[in-house]
Computed example of a mutant assay.
Amino acid sequence: MQIGNFDSSWRSEGMKDIDPLKMIEFRRVEEIFLSLTRSHDYQEIRTPTIEPLHLYTATRVLSPQLLHRVYSFLDWDGWSGERVVLRPDSTVPAARLFAESEQEISRLCYVQPVYRFSTDEQPRELWQCGVELFGIPAVQADVELLTILLELLQKVGVDRDRYHIDISHAGLIQLILSYTGMTLEDQRHLYEVILTGETLSREDFSINDDAVFSSLELLSQIKGESPDYVLNLQSLLKNSSSEIEQSVIELRAASKILSDSGVNFNILPGTTANFDYYTGVTFRVVIQDIECVSGGRYDLLTKSLGAQQSPASGFAVDLMKLAHISNDGG
């Protein structure tokens, strides 16, 4: 039945129905994901749709850009209220659940939407399937997550020649930026410049140490495609410390699992705009120029919630994008 002069205001902007055909695609990916994660001993969770805003501001999980995109309102009882948000991210609630459980190791997974305001035609309700791994440090956890991710892509039918994976190490560039002596705000700005690929200027950032500037210049030009590239990178970095060496070990382990799997990948200066949140290896999956998966390590997350610091890492998949792409040519 068609309705003449249909009023588009019957549906909120940025919100989309999932019709019966798309639900078939949705359920297929969801079932593959849940079956796969169960086989790796992950347990499914569901977290509240409405969360306190301070849960996200305290943990710095949201980049400044994303913080401006949350749906925020006052939960008012007539006398007082607190600022709350529609869940913009599922990792922090999962970390809270882990902290409350008092377990040492926890493997959690979820299928649920997050809500983010957008001024373009992108959906504002984003269905994600994701995993969160707590209590297992790098390198073991990074390899486990990448193994699950590669299995998922294979099982949903995305051929290797249709996608590539970008990887980086947030801790590595944070360490070198800390050597500059700049304020944290200036470090964040310099990190943004590095992500854009712009040429670094010593004068613009008042970097007097030649060794530090050389290392930053080298990092800004990173683009490798093999584990050996990481070793070459370590030999070229100036003022190499034990922390930098550990970062290189972690980055090389991640690149090796991808190389051994025959996956196309790039080693980049960064894969995420959030400077403060990630602490180790980060990655994203790009399928036919569409980013469908992002993840990484965030070892300071549980501590920011007031719990004991615990190794933490995970990834989230844009379920609708992956369902559509995997159903469109395999």
Rank of each mutant, 00 (worst) to 15 (best):
L62M: 11
G171A: 10
S242Q: 11
E185Q: 05
V131I: 15
G135N: 06
L233T: 03
Q112F: 05
S9L: 11
L36S: 05
D209N: 15
G296A: 10
R160H: 13
E245C: 04
D204P: 00
R107G: 09
F275I: 02
A273E: 14
R116H: 02
T57L: 12
Q128H: 09
R87I: 11
R297E: 13
H169A: 11
Q234I: 07
Y110D: 08
V281N: 05
P311W: 08
G130S: 07
A307N: 09
P93V: 09
V193L: 05
V212R: 04
R83H: 09
L195V: 04
L53D: 08
Q246G: 00
P137H: 06
L108K: 03
H164Y: 12
L231D: 13
R252W: 08
V114Q: 02
Q2S: 13
F33I: 03
I165S: 08
R252E: 14
L322E: 07
S255N: 09
S214F: 03
V114G: 10
Q122N: 14
I136M: 15
T282I: 10
L231I: 15
I18T: 06
E125S: 05
I24Q: 11
P113Y: 04
L219Q: 00
L322H: 01
L177F: 04
L133G: 02
D318M: 01
P64H: 06
G14M: 05
D209Q: 03
G157V: 05
V230G: 01
V230Q: 05
L305V: 11
L67V: 07
S259F: 13
Y71T: 03
K303I: 09
R69K: 14
S235T: 13
P64K: 07
P88F: 04
A95K: 02
R69I: 05
E198P: 01
A58N: 13
P311H: 12
G280V: 09
V143A: 14
N208H: 14
D186S: 01
D328F: 06
L218V: 03
F98W: 00
E217D: 13
S259E: 12
R188E: 03
D161C: 06
V230E: 08
R188L: 07
L184C: 00
E291Q: 11
S9W: 02
A138D: 15
Q122I: 03
K223F: 09
D166T: 02
E217K: 08
Q112T: 09
D186L: 00
L34Q: 08
Q221F: 02
N232P: 02
I165R: 05
W10G: 15
T57I: 11
L149W: 01
V158C: 10
V158I: 14
L237F: 04
D328I: 01
R83V: 11
D120P: 01
G181Y: 02
E151S: 15
R162N: 09
L258Y: 06
K22T: 12
P52W: 07
V92K: 01
D318Q: 06
M1H: 10
L236R: 14
E192N: 01
L195I: 12
Y229W: 10
A94G: 07
R83Y: 08
Q308N: 12
I173G: 04
T180L: 01
L67S: 11
T47I: 06
Q154W: 00
V286H: 06
Q112V: 09
